[in-house]
């Protein structure tokens, strides 16, 4: 597939935003349970604003993907069948809940409404955050399912895609939270950093799983379609000579990345380094040095890596339509 910048930014930005929100909320829950020191409203308001900014950024990026952004509202109509439509519905919901969460903190709605099991005070922010969390996970699912639900893109058509999108979002969000905390100088850095690293390592497992799976797909193993089934001719030697257009077509532009296997390999190694190795190292180093900037750097590096990862995610997917567009003359 041809990696579209708009989609790369959309998915990575909202992923980080969602993750950041989850981090904030987790932090709040831990604090309520007195497992972490409580933070002032400013922390949550600021964090929510950052998360919201990321979500809005993603939304803006998504418009660049549309041929007709002015009609984007129409995309909300087919939620029964279309994951894309569902994403279009859930994304604003998440944004609204994140905004509400921040607003609730800002307005100081922190008085418990009631207590759960007598010990856990349930505040409006906690309830909004809970819904926010549900929505965030729903959004992870919707976004990922846009890719994972298309059976033709076999590299994507796997639960690993959902796992990756979710874990990458969580990892980058927690690292951002760690960076945010480090920057503010509060004590949550280690908490967020640790969970960020855990999520990163989990993502490493699922991403390596996906890479391994895709490698075997690339070797043709288990690929459902072949040039033989594409044109219905049973013979071992079938080679396309012409696709009916020498100057290319939508089908050659949308479904091919046009880069050499060498470039692909370099980019893969680069994203493995940037997404996994470096951030973990930087967080560890930041922990040792008690640096205020290194966790932020860890996030920045990982985000950069995620951009490449997402590019690679597209590039490594081979669409069966390519069987019809593999030769020019």
């Amino acid at each position: 597939m041809h990696p579209a910048l708009s989609v790369i930014f959309l998915t990575t930005l909202i992923g980080a935003g969602q993750g950041l929100f989850l981090a904030l909320y987790t932090g709040q829950v831990y604090a309520l349970a007195n497992l972490l020191p409580a933070q002032g409203a400013g922390f949550y308001v600021g964090g929510s604003l950052i998360a919201l900014a990321l979500l809005v950024g993603g939304l803006i990026a998504s418009f660049f993907h549309l041929g007709r952004p002015e009609r984007a509202w129409r995309a909300a109509t087919r939620w029964r069948t279309s994951w894309l439509s569902r994403e279009v519905l859930v994304l604003p919901l998440v944004m609204a809940l994140v905004a509400a969460y921040g607003l609730a903190h800002y307005l100081g709605w922190t008085a418990p409404l009631f207590s759960l099991a007598g010990t856990l005070p349930i505040t409006p922010t906690l309830i909004i955050g809970l819904f926010g969390t549900l929505a965030v996970f729903a959004l992870f699912l919707c976004t990922a399912m846009i890719y994972a639900a298309v059976p033709f893109l076999e590299e994507w058509h796997s639960p690993l895609t959902v796992a990756n999108f979710t874990l990458f979002g969580i990892a980058s969000g927690f690292l951002l939270a760690a960076g945010y905390s480090a920057w503010l100088g509060n004590q949550l850095v280690a908490f967020f950093g640790t969970w960020g690293v855990i999520a990163t390592l989990l993502a490493l497992v699922t991403r390596l799983g996906a890479l391994a799976r895709n490698r075997s797909l690339a070797r043709g193993k288990g690929r459902k379609s072949t040039v033989q089934s594409a044109i219905g001719v049973r013979h071992s030697a079938v080679v396309q000579k012409a696709q009916g257009a020498t100057g290319g077509s939508f089908n050659t532009r949308e479904f091919f990345h046009g880069r050499s296997p060498g470039t692909l390999k370099v980019l893969r190694n680069l994203f493995l380094l940037l997404v996994f190795v470096l951030p973990v190292a930087l967080v560890a180093l930041g922990y040792v040095l008690e640096s205020a900037t290194l966790p932020l750097a860890a996030f920045a590096v990982q985000y950069l890596g995620l951009l490449i990862e997402r590019w690679y995610f597209f590039a490594e997917a081979t669409h069966p339509q390519n069987l019809y567009y593999s030769g020019v003359s």
Binding site: V227, V233, A237, V238, V239, A242, G244, S329
Partner: peptide
């Protein structure tokens, strides 16, 4: 589009 394949 009309495409061309060679078989064999």
């Amino acid at each position: 589009r009309v495409q061309t394949f060679e078989v064999g």
